[in-house]
Structure formats: structure tokens, C-alpha cells
Design a protein around this nucleic acid. Structure first.
Ligand SMILES: [Zn+2]
Ligand SMILES: [Zn+2]
Ligand SMILES: [Zn+2]
Ligand SMILES: [Zn+2]
Lengths: 155, 155
DNA sequence: TGATTCTATGCCAAAGGTTAACAATACACA
DNA sequence: TGTGTATTGTTAACCTTTGGCATAGAATCA
């Protein structure tokens, strides 16, 4: 995704930050894996293949940077790890991120976009005067496959 | 809330667990503070006033117990602490918990109940076959007071 | 009430993800 | 190419949370 990469370099330069191989490599690792939710350690392992001398602290620092630049999204599943994934396609508009369906059986994570949430937010603005600018939604349940597997088992 | 307390004792006994002063004290500390979101350390400090010899590990163990019994709810604000609060009034029905509006300015947390989410969940069931049984929603933005304060400042 | 059993507690140490310190490196700009 | 400064890699520290273990105490029954 060279488009994303050029945007990233420009963003760095605009903010007086330096373009380094490590930063590019980490963004690439995430860009190559859309839909995956990687921990810092997992990113570290991926990047080390092409860049064996990179340090874990650099991964943490770069992750934080990418997150502040809204290029990656954070996901906390309360399992002791914070996970990251590449953000939306057009990062310049402050568009809402996608949200997560987490299967309690197989652990798979599915994404969904939010349309109905805007109703909720406008109603909150009306009734409480609270202006929502960002949101994080996690829905827990059972995915189609696991539901089917259960039905088969109980036969 | 003696009602809640008796329910708690019964729940413990039903599960072959013992009723201890520490467990009662921790549930009381949370019951006395509805709407507050306390860390383990904060609960520890509160309970120590009436029960100076309690250990921090007991607080952690009891919190986990109360959480498994659905008597308290967990809240993670990604600030390095997990917070807890007393759950809904009637814990026997598996009712949905309330959700949180977090002000990015003053840090206050406001609660709201979810009605519109059921629309979302039924639509997800239709389109993706995913059966939602629980959800966690955090909305970030600016509360009424902070919006007013800003308007005053900019005059 | 007193003995018995086994859970729960308190204390302490360890775990484990994340961050800080700091000297060495390398990017940016001339 | 040289200079200045941000960035990196290494290492140790941080800090919330969990585990181990001996002791205390709740539950049960005689
Ligand atoms: Zn995702
Ligand atoms: Zn599944
Ligand atoms: Zn709450
Ligand atoms: Zn506010």
C-alpha cells in the first residue's frame, strides 16, 4: 500500500518527525495484514524477519506514534494484551472506525461498520447535551459457524 | 442495601463458597457507591477503614468472584487500571448493563441505558448470523458543562 | 459447644506487559 | 561531507495483577 506509506512519510515530515526504516517497516507490517489484530510482541516478531536488529521498545514507541496519527486503531480485549490494526482507508477524514464482534466460542473477531450508532449519538446529544466524537463498541456472542457446530453436536 | 447482601450470601452458599466478613465488606463498599468506578486499590483503601487487616490480594480475589457472580461490572478505560462498579438492581435476570459516556475534557463518566442497540443486534443477527449476548460500549466526547465552559472562554 | 475439615485470608514474591534512562546511531539539512 | 538533533537498542525499572504457602476461620456434625 504505497499510497498509505507516502501519506505516512508526509505526516511525519509535517510534524517535524524523521522518516526511519523502522517506522516504515512497522506500518508496512500492519498494512499487509488488514483485519488482523496484532499485539506489540506479534508486530515485533513480524518486523524482525526483515529487520532483525529492531528493538521491542521501538515497536512500542512507533505504535504509539501511529495511533496518535490515527493511522492505526487500538483494540483491548481484556486478555492482557493491547492489539493494533491498520485503520480506515482514508485517514484524513476523521471517519469512525469499524467495530468488533467477538465470538465467545472460537474467539474469532468479525468487523462491522456502524450506521445505527449515529441515531444513538444524536439522541444522546439531544437528551444529555453530550457531544460524542468517538466510540468503541464490542459485541460478544456466537458466530454463525459455532452456532451450526452446536446444532450438529446436539443431534 | 441489605437485600443485595442477602442475595449475595445465598449465592455464595449455593455455590459452596463461604460467607466472610471481607467479602461482605467489599460488596458493601461498592454498594454504597453506585455510579462510581473504583480501582482495586481504591476499593482496598475504602475497605481498610473498617477492616484494617485486609490484604490487597483478597480484594482482587473477591472482585473476581463478584464479577463472575454478575454482581459487579468491569470497566476498562485503558489508563492502566481496571475499574469496578455495582451492577444492575436485579442481578438474577441477565439484563444488559449500562454504558459509559466519557468526557475527554473533564474525565467525568456518565451512564446511559441502551435501547437502540437492540436494533443493531437484531440486524447483525439477520445479516451476519452472529448472535449477540453481551456488549460493551464506550462513547467519548464532551459533556454539556465542558461545552459551555469552552463557549464562555472563547468570548 | 467443641472438634474436624477445608476454604479463605494475609503476606510476600513473582509474573508480565509496558515504559524510562541513556549512550550510540542515523536522519535531515546545509 | 559535517553538524545537530531526533531516534534507536539495550537494559532495567515500573506497576498492576497473580501465585504460593502457612495460618486463620467458616461450616458441619457430634
Ligand atoms: Zn478490527
Ligand atoms: Zn465462533
Ligand atoms: Zn458505570
Ligand atoms: Zn466534561
Amino acid at each position: 500500500m504505497p499510497n498509505n506509506q507516502e501519506q505516512f512519510k508526509d505526516l511525519l515530515r509535517k510534524n517535524g518527525l524523521k522518516v526511519t526504516n523502522q517506522r516504515i517497516a512497522i506500518l508496512e507490517a500492519l498494512s499487509d495484514r488488514p483485519g488482523e489484530h496484532l499485539t506489540a510482541e506479534e508486530i515485533y516478531d513480524v518486523v524482525k524477519k526483515d529487520y532483525p536488529d529492531i528493538g521491542l521498545a521501538t515497536v512500542y514507541r512507533t505504535i504509539q506514534l501511529l495511533s496518535e496519527l490515527n493511522l492505526i486503531d487500538k483494540l483491548n480485549l481484556d486478555d492482557g494484551y493491547v492489539r493494533y490494526e491498520i485503520g480506515s482507508e482514508n485517514p484524513e477524514e476523521n471517519c469512525h472506525h469499524h467495530h468488533h464482534l467477538i465470538c465467545l466460542d472460537c474467539g474469532n473477531i468479525y468487523a462491522f461498520q456502524d450506521d445505527l450508532l449515529e441515531n444513538l449519538e444524536s439522541r444522546i446529544k439531544e437528551t444529555l447535551g453530550f457531544d460524542v466524537v468517538n466510540h468503541e463498541v464490542k459485541l460478544y456472542g456466537y458466530c454463525k459457524e459455532c452456532i451450526n457446530n452446536r446444532a450438529v453436536k446436539s443431534n
